Simulated scan of single mutants.
Amino acid sequence: MFATLVNTLGNGAYLATSALFLTRSVGLTPGQVAAGLSLAALAGIVLTTPMGAVADRRGPKQVQIVALLVLAACFAGLTQVHHLWSYAVVASVIAVANATVKASTGAMIAGAVPPAERVRTRAFIRSTNNAGLGLGTALGAVPLLLDSRAGYLAVLLANTATFLVAAAVVGRADAVDRVARPAGVSRLAVLRDRPFVAFVLVDGLVASLYNALLSLALPLFLLAYTHAPAYLVSAALLVNTIGCVTLQVWISRGTHTAVDAVPVSRRGALLVGASCVLFGLTAGRSARLVGALVLAAAVVHVIGELWLSAGTFAVVFDLAPDWAQGQYQGALQTGRQLGDMVAPPLLTALVIGLGEPGWLALASIFAGAGLVYPSIVRWALRRRPALVETPPLVAA
């Protein structure tokens, strides 16, 4: 967890400054930045699941260390980026390596932690991740105020150092034994696991939507449909950060298996849907009422988000065979990457294009996900014996 905290401090500072660094210091246009990020997203979608399979074969600890060192090299390399294509290449490697770190982290937890403690451990890491990102974002305000190339380069080099520190910390952790793969089973068996693929596609869309609600949909909507002050967005994000840091472990208690995750995920999806209704009610209201509704919706949203996260942790750990934890974790990240491509245009079209009815449409998407989660998980549980009882074994 210390490695996560150090690493996310640097990532938070970079995320806060990256847009201005790329446009004001490197000289890229906003369109070129978007194009580079799109190419990076495509690379992540194609390569993340295979990299998870590599973590299964080579060991998640070793793969995570290599990925962290690659990230250190990439962020140092960003200091030499001067045009679109060099940025696109570096951004693509960063996207794949970041997802590989997440997949290998999940595989390390699965290999080193007893099943009953995996979700709790993953919840601790998510809390630490949010704390580091929050602090890093705050630290990023300094170079933003300076608005100089030297300040932006300092952030990049500091982030490079955090990856090196994280790699050193992970290197001191106990190695996770590789688990042999059953004979006759595809090296990318997760892609043949149709219920799990269905789960990660739904989860990817839902997670991307709830992650972007406060940072994208809410500010756009408040600007277009209310006269409320812009600081309400910061207040909502602060509520979310505090909730994620302080409540994730507590809310995850009692959620250990995919069966446990069914009611938890349903409640979470319905709660996030309810927050969408509250956000939609702000249209045309007084500033004071808008403030109350936004804060109430932010509280409802973060509780729903935490329940959804806990449910996802339990489903992935429980459904993945021991010999394929890396590739299942990688498939989860691929679903998130696909969701990240769909969520921004969908949110913009609904919230800005439709206004209050758009929020109701979003609420229906979350409600629908809450209703379909149980069916997908039960389908996966019915199919699971075919994956976990396939002898004999071969080297992974």
Rank of each mutant, 00 (worst) to 15 (best):
V179P: 02
R181S: 02
A141K: 06
F163E: 04
N129L: 14
A175K: 12
L146S: 07
D174P: 09
V165A: 09
A150P: 05
V155L: 10
N159A: 05
A180P: 09
P182I: 02
G171K: 06
D147R: 12
L164W: 05
L146W: 13
A167V: 05
V155K: 01
A161L: 15
L139E: 01
A161P: 06
R178I: 13
P143K: 01
P143W: 00
L164I: 07
D174L: 10
N159P: 04
A168F: 13
A154T: 14
V170S: 03
V142F: 10
R178D: 05
L164G: 08
G151A: 15
G132Y: 01
G134K: 04
L156P: 00
V155E: 04
A183I: 05
D174H: 14
A154P: 08
Y152A: 03
A150L: 15
T160D: 06
A167L: 08
V155C: 10
G151P: 08
A167H: 04
V169H: 04
A154M: 13
A183S: 13
P143N: 03
S127D: 11
P143T: 02
P182N: 06
L153R: 13
V176T: 12
A123S: 15
F124A: 05
D174A: 15
T128S: 11
R181M: 10
T162C: 04
T137W: 03
G140Q: 00
T162I: 03
L135A: 10
A166I: 00
A131I: 09
D177G: 14
A131D: 07
T128L: 11
G134I: 07
L139K: 00
A168R: 11
L164T: 06
V169K: 01
L156T: 01
